[in-house]
Design a protein around this nucleic acid. Sequence first.
DNA 1: AGAATACGATACGTATCGTACCGTAAGGAC
DNA 2: GTCCTTACGGTACGATACGTATCGTATTCT
Lengths: 211, 211
Amino acid sequence: MSEPTISAPVPRGRPRSERSHRAILEAANEILEERGFVDLTMDEVAQRGGVSKATIYRWWPTKGMLVFEAFTANFLARQPTPDTGSLRGDLLAALRSWIRTVKGTVTGRTLVGLIAEVQRDPDLAELWRERFVTRVRAQHRLIFDRALGRGEILADVDPDVMLDLLFGSAYHRLLQSHLPLTDRFAQAVVDMMVAGVQSGHAATNGNGKKL
Amino acid sequence: MSEPTISAPVPRGRPRSERSHRAILEAANEILEERGFVDLTMDEVAQRGGVSKATIYRWWPTKGMLVFEAFTANFLARQPTPDTGSLRGDLLAALRSWIRTVKGTVTGRTLVGLIAEVQRDPDLAELWRERFVTRVRAQHRLIFDRALGRGEILADVDPDVMLDLLFGSAYHRLLQSHLPLTDRFAQAVVDMMVAGVQSGHAATNGNGKKL
DNA sequence: AGAATACGATACGTATCGTACCGTAAGGAC
DNA sequence: GTCCTTACGGTACGATACGTATCGTATTCT
């Protein structure tokens, strides 16, 4: 671990208070549960956490960044990608986990609020892509690695397009609220995708042939 | 605007200034082009339109509502659903039109800003669903009516799920910015969907067809 | 003429983000 | 044990921008 070339990070001065760190994140999560992203104010986080706003802003540059951290670990822990033995089972399990996590939950409301904030804050957008989207997608891409290993799909199936179909349609319903995120919806999406890849050369890179 | 009820629409007092009405919408569109939704301020709309803020707020209750109106007509006019003669052609045309409208354009940035605002303002969300989402989807649902008439799909194909797959995946890339909205992407999505409806779901009846 | 409504100008209230500054606390270096 | 460095709580403040309120004026119908 010790790198002689890089300056040794010898901590000087008063160390960061781990207690305040936790208190801030816990207060943020509490307020998110009660009022959601929009109505969470930094003043209240400070007050309820028993810390000063200066301390918050010393470690998190914006409200978005703070909520991002309070949210991410919680969310990621709830998105497993178990090996069910089939592509259809894996896709359905992943989508059902996601729906269970976000539908009618604090986590879902916070996710929506963060996605909205990401559209307004370029710095947060970069963090969002690198520390959330990329991470979740890498995890879910295992589903297609396994399906390829089983011989269920061909190598020309683009996992990125598959992920966009699977979760894009779900995020769509979450954000537009035009229709509910039912289990019937999940099954229909997965059935359509499985039928698509099993028909031969679908979801390739766009050399669509006419049947 | 027009009252279909029994009350005779006899206008009393000074009529609404159509000139101010237009000036407000035009100023809003100009600022949206230059700076986007977040950095559009109501004070500047008033100043540039040569009107008072009171006049704006007399007709639009919030900034979101104003921008919604300035945006909607413009967007809807660019989303035709031409009959290309095949399901694949119709889907591809619709998705390509959408991508052309939003990718790297002011309209796309405004769309993103509005979707973000919709997540923060319940009143705007209702308007958004009723006057935008519902309208666009009704228009695009014609694609599946025609496909059904041609015998390309079975009656058990759910048009709502199909629309969520088609546009959900596209909105996903627009909002998450993890991957670009290429034409290759559009083709892959459409190929996948066409393959899905033509093979898998027909399993119940066993009369999958080829054209 | 008078009632009703819209208009422009402008000041104001409110909310909330993020920063500045203070005196103090907690560690390491010597 | 003293000095230096950094973090802390408390709080005031600046900045921005939404949306409201008020006022005198303008325009139309009755």
